[in-house]
Amino acid sequence: MSGNRAHLVEPVGPDDHVEGPDDAAITLVEYGDYQCPYCGQAYAIVKKLQSDFGSSLRLVFRNMPLTNVHPQAELAAETAEAVALQGKFWPMHDLLFEKQRDLSGPALLRYVEEVGADLSEVANALNDGVVTKRVKDDVESGIRSGVNGTPTFFVNGERYDASWDYESFHDFLQDVLEQP
């Protein structure tokens, strides 16, 4: 039978989008989709966990747009990656989840401007294929790591299969923190 639980095959590296210190006791990797309503719910919960655990928690976000069910998710992910090239990934990530009800093309342009990124540079990055490859690489590393839906979380490299409602997730992370 299964025995070995799914784990992250691509370790957190310099190309990742990271919030929190490298030596944090907990590294939480999320594979998410900007158009996924569950990821929208998880966004608020993760924010709360970041505030609870402070410098003990390092958050990493990777893309897993499920394009068959979320037709706007791919362009949203690529736009966030294009904005990231200007050092503004996290404000864009946050805005996309906060405004996930409107991820139309015109809305994405507004969000790019709202976070203060240069629109023509974003357009260039979207056209030259770099960000497309970035998202594709995230999807492949997610697939190979056993991502089984969105959002999927990995805690210190192990897939977290229990509920990510605030209480359960908080208690689980607290236990991880208190492990000797």
Binding site: M1, S2, A6, V9, I143, R144, S145, G146, V147, N148, G149, R159, D161
Partner: peptide, 16 residues
């Protein structure tokens, strides 16, 4: 072959 707990999506990694 692989059988998952009924409530947990298995992911694709094993089959791949």
């Amino acid at each position: 072959s692989h059988v998952s707990p009924i409530g947990i999506s298995p992911g694709v990694d094993g089959a791949l």
